[in-house]
Nucleic acid binder design. Structure first.
Lengths: 215, 215
DNA sequence: GTCTATAAGTAGATAGAC
DNA sequence: GTCTATCTACTTATAGAC
């Protein structure tokens, strides 16, 4: 902690790498400390030395990896909120793309960390509050404000909340359930499919929102 | 098995009840056999006596509870597929309602068993194949055929698959993430909210599908 | 069918040598 | 900072008395 000793830093990082990967694959309970240190190639006691406990290591994965790496995504939303852009199709496509691509051209961190979110939603621990307060709720609020600006007609607040949740539900499904998606679509979850998906999702969202009064 | 001894039947059922509840709350790994038998008010060894193993008890929850209780829901889809009804708004509303209400007026089994699906999706075991083959895939195929009949214009098969997944993603979100939903909407997940939700979801689906060619 | 007792394994965590 | 060795607790599962 006090020194930037490259060796001990690397040991700590190796544990964090393995923990991130294994917790994402199996969730907290199904992974043992022995499994983590085994894959990291370090000694069993390294977890307690560097992180005090398995539980704290788990939380550190969220604090040191998940939240920092969601910054590009959050920055995209923040920027979109401040820009003068108010064209709904552009706004929606940019947000959908930010979710599935993480705001950049490379593989989305949201997709990489999807399984971690998923386990935490299914089995909430202290990390749930962290995710909710630092990621989900701020993102939800921003998306809601962005949609509000892009929608021309008057919309009730609860209706707007529903549109926001619809967007999150749709992208979340593709982020969290890639196995089911691959099976049903009979396609690999590759870059071409991601492009196609962004098209489908953007169009669907746009038309779902742009409704006239009920027939 | 061979006798309908009421005492032993009730012991078996009490274990199954507690297992269903606890596995739904915490998932397989986080629940111990002691916890199950403790809450059921029966002896520890009852699990191995009646179900051979913890793993098999878990599977039995799906075989004896989840799948049978999904019958009303599946029956609704089957009936909808065979009826001459081809009005898209009615078709969509009936399906959305079947998900969230399980096809009847009382609390949906889909909602009751939501956490079990959720844990299994996050942490797939043998029960995943069971759910996929006996519930998700058949439901998906039926919904897709029902939508195909209700949509007037020509639609590509993959586009149709996407619409089907959109419906499942939207309802799944409300079935699986009730905690998040309550927090964001600041409303209880009661009957009134369920009615409102069915309105929102049906409208959103309907307009999301009924798009003209892209502007 | 239900109990006691216990086996056999694994979990997270720690004291102390190096 | 990393290792060995071990502690304590808890897990599923089973053999055998009642």
């Amino acid at each position: 902690m006090e020194q930037s000793s490259s060796h001990s830093d690397r040991t700590r990082e190796k544990v964090l790498d393995a923990a991130e990967r294994l917790f994402a694959q199996k969730g907290f309970d199904a992974v043992s400390v022995r499994e983590i240190t085994g894959q990291a190639g370090v000694h069993l006691s390294a977890v307690n030395y560097y992180f005090e406990s398995k539980k704290n290591l788990y939380l550190e994965v969220f604090r040191a990896r998940v939240l920092p790496q969601s910054q590009p995504f959050q920055a995209t939303l923040k920027q979109l909120e401040q820009e003068e852009e108010i064209d709904l199709p552009v706004l929606i496509r940019t947000m959908v793309s930010a979710f599935l691509r993480g705001g950049t051209g490379r593989r989305s961190n949201m997709v990489r960390h999807g399984p971690l979110f998923f386990h935490e939603l299914a089995n909430p621990s202290e990390a749930f509050d962290l995710l909710m307060d630092e990621l989900f709720q701020p993102a939800h609020d921003r998306i809601k404000r962005i949609l509000a600006r892009g929608i021309k007609r008057e919309v009730e607040d609860e209706q707007l909340t529903f549109y926001t949740m619809a967007l999150m539900a749709l992208v979340r499904h593709y982020i969290h359930s890639q196995a089911v998606v691959q099976k049903v679509f009979e396609r690999d979850f590759d870059e071409r499919f991601l492009d196609q998906l962004i098209d489908y999702l953007s169009d669907f969202m746009l038309h779902g929102i742009n409704l006239e009064e009920k027939a």
